[in-house]
């Protein structure tokens, strides 16, 4: 990685009070600049001057910037904080909970270089593994209740960024990172999404990339069944009422949509499970 002291040489240091943020979403940007400029350090310096002197921000907005040759520049100076957890200025004026990565170039009509995609995956994989975030999951954000953990700038507000081609490639990046996750044995922390009906006071269903977890808030007399779209029962919990939580590993389930049916305290609750 290229340190700030290397690319910022000769330019004024940022001077401000850094703020820590706990990252739930990684936001991918493009710089919307020239694809022909190969002076990548120069591009980062231009962006720094633009953000600090013209926009009047305290520092460059992004946490990281990735060049077409795969070089990763450290962006906003974290001071004594961590590079990935310093609050940036890149996501529609709602930066809390996000980490910004800017891919240098414009990707509305052309694909990013394989080297920059490889570095992006490396960076995202490292961050998500470090914080146990689900590569194919979502985490609610002020601007988007279902903001993907790996999101594009346009998932937060009206903008072309990160360019149509790069945006379309994010899904592939999510699954590639998930594959690396599996290979490395990482596990994502569950993101609690209480189901939106009367069951929310009774039970909470949480999903991760590999697990389905149901916590029973009231009563312990329950049974869990899972059906495929043809109505075939593909899973039935063996235990009844012996625990207040059940965790089902979904690795063995084929790709598709399933119906979860839960009998609890004489009531039936249903929800949908999508295995991708």
């Amino acid at each position: 990685m290229i340190e700030q002291s290397a690319w910022r040489e000769g330019l004024p240091d940022p001077s401000y009070e850094r703020i820590k943020t706990t990252v739930h979403n990684v936001i991918v940007h493009h710089s919307a600049g020239s694809n022909t400029d190969t002076n990548y350090t120069g591009i980062v310096r231009n962006i720094y001057i633009y953000h600090t002197e013209i926009r009047g921000w305290s520092d460059i907005g992004y946490n990281y910037l990735v060049a077409p040759d795969g070089a990763i520049f450290k962006g906003r100076d974290p001071g004594s904080l961590e590079q990935d957890n310093v609050l940036g200025a890149h996501f529609c004026a709602a930066n809390s909970g996000t980490m910004g990565i800017c891919i240098l170039g414009t990707y509305t009509e052309v694909s990013p270089a394989p080297e920059s995609i490889a570095s992006l995956k490396l960076l995202v994989n490292w961050k998500l593994g470090k914080d146990s975030l689900d590569p194919v999951g979502t985490h609610p954000h002020l601007l988007n209740a279902s903001l993907p953990v790996i999101a594009g700038h346009r998932d937060g507000c009206a903008t072309e960024c990160p360019g149509e081609i790069l945006y379309q490639s994010l899904n592939g990046i999510r699954y590639d990172v998930q594959e690396i996750f599996r290979a490395c044995g990482y596990r994502a922390k569950p993101v609690e999404t209480a189901i939106k009906n009367s069951a929310s006071s009774v039970l909470t269903i949480s999903y991760t990339a590999e697990t389905l977890s149901i916590r029973f808030n009231e009563g312990r007399n329950w049974q869990l069944k899972l059906f495929d779209l043809l109505g075939r029962e593909v899973y039935r919990s063996n235990q009844q009422g012996s625990s207040d939580e059940v965790i089902l590993f979904t690795d063995d389930l084929a790709t598709g949509v399933y119906l979860i049916k839960i009998l609890c305290n004489g009531n039936v609750y249903t929800d949908k499970l999508i295995c991708r």
């Binding site: 710089s31 919307a32 600049g33 002076n39 231009n46 013209i54 414009t106």
Partner: peptide
Amino acid sequence: KFSNLLTFSN
């Protein structure tokens, strides 16, 4: 409002 930032090697 500002446009995008265009940069040049030289």
